Simulated scan of single mutants.
Amino acid sequence: MIHHHIEAASQVPGMKEILLIGSYQHNDQLSRFFAAVQQEFKILIRYLQEYTALGTAGGMYHFRDQILSGSPEAFFVMNCDVCGEFPLKEMLEFHQQKGTGAHFTMLGTEATRQQSLNYGCIVETKHTSEVTHYVEKPETFVSTTISCGIYLFSPEIFQFIGHAFQKKQEEISFDVDSNLHTKDTIHLEQDIFVEQLAGSGLLYVYHTSKFWSQIKSAGAAIYANRHYLKIYNRTHPERLSQNAEGKATIIGDVYIHPSATIHPSAVLGPNVTIGKNVVIGPGVRVRESLVLEDALIQDHCCILHSIVGWNSTVGQWTRIEGTPNDPNPNKPFAKVDIPDLFNADGRLNPSITVLGSNVQIPAEVIVLNSIVLPHKELGRSYKNQIIL
């Protein structure tokens, strides 16, 4: 997911540096990833680790000196739990047309009335695109224009975040019986947009009709994969695999990492991604799925609407399958309701099958609409279950 963010940001004219902010522990896997993408996109990338999760604005404020080093004219902020065809160049042009000085731009898209209740809703002045009202996940309908979680800020944003920070220092006392309150947690949505910027004349919305969605569950990755591959078909067709004599049969959009080993009798696609060092044996069928790094798919397996995790093994003649809830796969992505992993009553919502990392699946079984947590070795078939 982050790779797509970095690629989009690296193509913006004048982009000097990419900073990733999070509370995840820095590790060798992250270091290897950063080294690889720095080499690929020829741009400096740094990871700034929060001492605890500080909210969508708290991390920015904590690392404000690093963000402002080099005196940027403006900087993008992108939430990492979204995916899409990010129109950053167009957004920058829109932002610059609004003039110099303190002003701020958010990316917006259209949703249905029902979908809008799950997002930040934007009310704007049509002829100026000024945001006059903003509500985060409203209880009743406000607007079909929703925030995409992508922003372009002038450095003056830190004055507003600083004001929110000072207000929290004065008003919030820590409750020893609860971890819900912290003076350092600041949210862009409630503390900045709702409380300060909406209606101020400083906040604008740039609209996009291109592919965009949140990634809130593993199942959403299947849908995101489909659309990213569709984008590759149009913008980077050289990244997709083609049919050739002596190689596996390719149907539709398929990405295969150069290090993967695919038997010529396998059939892949449409909408399949095969990761680094994956091995796929004779007679295997893979459709609408992701097979992640170092996985082994043995002879005559069938992988449908599923994610196979890192270092996992699927035995011969085994079927790994999900049941997609996608009534119209050709609709724009922001208009498609991606099913949650669980129903309202807490039961697993049949949608896809996910195998965690280092999962061992035996030969001649079926795993249907199930979630298998990492480091499990199954001994039989499963249906509609979470294997702990």
Rank of each mutant, 00 (worst) to 15 (best):
I262T: 10
T140Y: 07
A244H: 05
T125D: 13
D299P: 07
G99Y: 00
F165R: 10
G55D: 04
S23A: 15
S351D: 02
V205D: 10
I172M: 11
T128W: 02
I280N: 02
G84P: 03
S351T: 05
T261F: 15
A8E: 00
G283Y: 12
V359R: 14
P237W: 08
R226A: 02
G84Y: 01
C148H: 07
S213A: 09
W317Q: 02
T323R: 03
S217R: 14
L152W: 08
S23F: 08
N343Q: 08
Y223G: 00
E245V: 10
R234K: 11
T353M: 02
H227Q: 14
A218Q: 06
H5L: 01
V308C: 05
S69F: 07
L202W: 03
N225W: 03
Q316I: 12
K376H: 15
S357N: 14
T182G: 07
Q196P: 01
A334C: 08
N343D: 08
L202K: 15
V82Y: 06
K247C: 08
L268I: 12
L202R: 14
N179D: 13
E156T: 01
D340C: 11
Q190A: 08
G120Q: 06
A102T: 07
H5A: 00
T323V: 11
G322H: 00
L88G: 09
S351H: 02
V336G: 09
T353Y: 03
T353S: 10
Q166I: 06
I251V: 14
Q29V: 12
E124F: 03
L92Q: 13
G281R: 12
T140K: 11
V142P: 00
Q242M: 03
P327E: 06
N384E: 10
N271M: 03
V131W: 01
T109H: 10
R46M: 07
E156K: 01
S259M: 04
C301I: 13
P270C: 04
M1C: 06
F174K: 04
I361F: 02
E90Q: 10
A220V: 05
E17P: 00
H26Q: 11
T249H: 08
G70H: 00
Y47V: 05
G101K: 05
A35G: 14
T182Q: 07
I122P: 07
F342S: 06
Y204C: 02
H207K: 04
D184T: 14
E321V: 15
V279G: 05
P327S: 08
S71K: 09
V267D: 12
E171F: 14
R64V: 00
E245C: 06
V359P: 15
N384V: 00
G162L: 05
D294E: 04
I67D: 08
K210V: 02
G252W: 10
I6D: 01
D299R: 10
V308Y: 01
R46T: 09
L152R: 12
V205W: 03
Q29G: 05
F211D: 15
A224W: 15
A198W: 08
H300D: 12
L88S: 12
S241L: 05
P258Q: 13
L197F: 11
I274N: 03
Y24W: 11
H236A: 12
E139L: 07
G309T: 13
S213G: 13
A344L: 11
P155C: 01
Q39Y: 15
G275E: 05
K210W: 05
K335L: 15
C302D: 14
Q214C: 07
L229N: 03
P138L: 04
